[in-house]
C-alpha cells in the first residue's frame, strides 16, 4: 500500500476537546476512525476515547495482515465499542451513559469500506470533487431529504446538532455501511467532525485538497474553520488519506500476474478467494442454460423462419 495520511484534532473555542481520532495500518490494511463525544451528555470525551480505542484494538488483533471481511469487522468493532461504553457507565453507576458519534473507514486491496453512526462525516474526493459522502443521522438531514427545509435553513436549524444514532445510548446504534468503493490513484478520503464540515462545505474542501499536500492542507483547513467557528466554536478534527495506488492498476494486468514469482501468485489467489465479488455464481449448467435461452430468443424473434 502507498498513501499519505494526516490527522489532527483541535479544541476550537470549547473548554475541552471531546473529539478523538486515530489511524492504524498493517502491511495490507488501513483503518481510520473519528469520534465526536457528545457535549450534552457527561464525559463525551470518554465515550469517544473508548470508541476509537476499541476499533484500534480490534484492528491490531485482527489485521494480520488483512481482514477477512471488512464490513463484518466494522460492524463487530463498532458494536463492541457501543457495549464497552455501556459497560463503562454501568460499572461507574452513571445515571446517563456518555455518547459519541463514530465514523470508521477501512481500506484494503485498494477498496474502501466505511461505516458510521451519528453526524461525523466521511467524504471521498476525486479530482477536486466530492464523489461520495456519509449521510448524517440527524433530524435536520431527514427534514432536508423530505424537502421540508432548504440547505440554508439546515445550516442554522436549532435542531442541527440532534442525532438519532450514536454509540453509548441505551437504544442500540443504527450503523450505516457504505458500498465497497474501489479507490483511484490520488483519491482523498477525509473523515471529520461537525466542527469542520459545519463551517466548510465538502465541495470547498475537495477543491482545496485537490493535488495538495495533506500535511499542509489539512492544518490550513482546520485553522480556517477554527477562525470561522469563532470564540465559542466547536471542537474540530480530521483524518485524511491520499491514496497513491489504484484498484485497476493492481488488478487487471495479465502480464504482472504472469511475470510474478510463484509464491506471489499464491498470495494473490488467497486475496481474491476471500473477496466475495469474485466468487462467480455462474456454473457450467447456468452457462448452458443462458446459451439455450439466447438461442430460443433468437429463434422466436427471427422473422420468416
Amino acid at each position: 500500500m502507498r498513501f499519505t495520511i494526516y490527522q489532527e484534532s483541535r479544541q476550537g473555542g470549547r473548554a475541552n476537546n471531546e473529539d478523538r481520532t486515530s489511524y492504524c495500518y498493517s502491511r495490507d490494511a488501513l483503518l481510520m476512525v473519528i469520534a465526536d463525544g457528545m457535549g450534552g451528555h457527561h464525559h463525551g470525551e470518554i465515550a469517544a476515547q473508548i470508541a476509537v480505542q476499541t476499533l484500534a484494538d480490534s484492528f491490531q488483533r485482527e489485521a494480520k495482515p488483512s481482514l477477512a471481511d471488512p464490513f463484518r469487522f466494522l460492524q463487530k468493532a463498532m458494536n463492541n465499542a457501543h457495549h464497552a461504553i455501556l459497560d463503562y457507565s454501568s460499572r461507574r453507576r452513571m445515571k446517563d451513559s456518555p455518547r459519541t458519534t463514530c465514523v470508521a473507514c477501512l481500506v484494503q486491496d485498494n477498496v474502501a469500506y466505511w461505516a458510521h453512526a451519528g453526524d461525523s462525516r466521511l467524504f471521498l474526493m476525486r479530482n477536486g470533487r466530492v464523489v461520495a459522502q456519509t449521510k448524517d443521522h440527524s433530524r435536520v438531514r431527514l427534514l432536508l431529504e423530505e424537502g421540508m427545509i432548504t440547505e440554508a435553513q439546515a445550516a442554522v436549524h436549532p435542531d442541527r446538532n440532534k442525532i438519532f444514532s450514536c454509540l453509548g445510548s441505551p437504544t442500540p446504534p443504527e450503523i450505516e455501511f457504505s458500498r465497497k468503493t474501489p479507490l483511484a490513484h490520488g483519491d482523498v478520503v477525509l473523515l471529520c467532525t461537525d466542527g469542520l464540515w459545519g463551517v466548510t462545505s465538502g465541495e470547498l474542501m475537495a477543491v482545496s485538497l485537490k493535488g495538495a499536500n495533506l500535511l499542509q492542507a489539512i492544518p490550513m483547513l482546520l485553522t480556517q474553520a477554527e477562525t470561522k467557528g469563532g470564540p465559542h466554536g466547536d471542537n474540530l478534527s480530521a483524518v485524511a488519506v491520499r491514496w497513491e495506488e489504484a484498484y485497476v492498476d493492481e488488478a487487471s494486468s495479465a502480464i504482472s500476474t504472469q511475470t510474478m514469482a510463484l509464491n506471489e501468485v499464491t498470495t494473490r489467489l488467497e486475496e481474491f478467494g476471500r473477496n466475495p465479488a469474485y466468487k462467480s455464481d455462474l456454473s457450467d449448467d447456468e452457462i448452458e442454460r443462458a446459451i439455450e435461452e439466447i438461442r430460443s430468443t433468437i429463434e422466436k424473434y427471427t422473422p420468416n423462419k
Binding site: 500476474t257 501468485v265 481474491f272 469474485y278 466468487k279 455462474l282 443462458a290 446459451i291 439466447i294
Partner: peptide, 18 residues
C-alpha cells in the same frame, strides 16, 4: 485467480446476447 472475473464478464456477454 481470474476465473471468477472471467465468468462474471461472460455473464455480461450473455446480457449483450440476450
Amino acid at each position: 485467480e481470474h476465473l471468477g472475473a472471467f465468468r462474471y464478464g461472460m455473464k455480461c456477454f450473455f446480457e449483450e446476447g440476450r
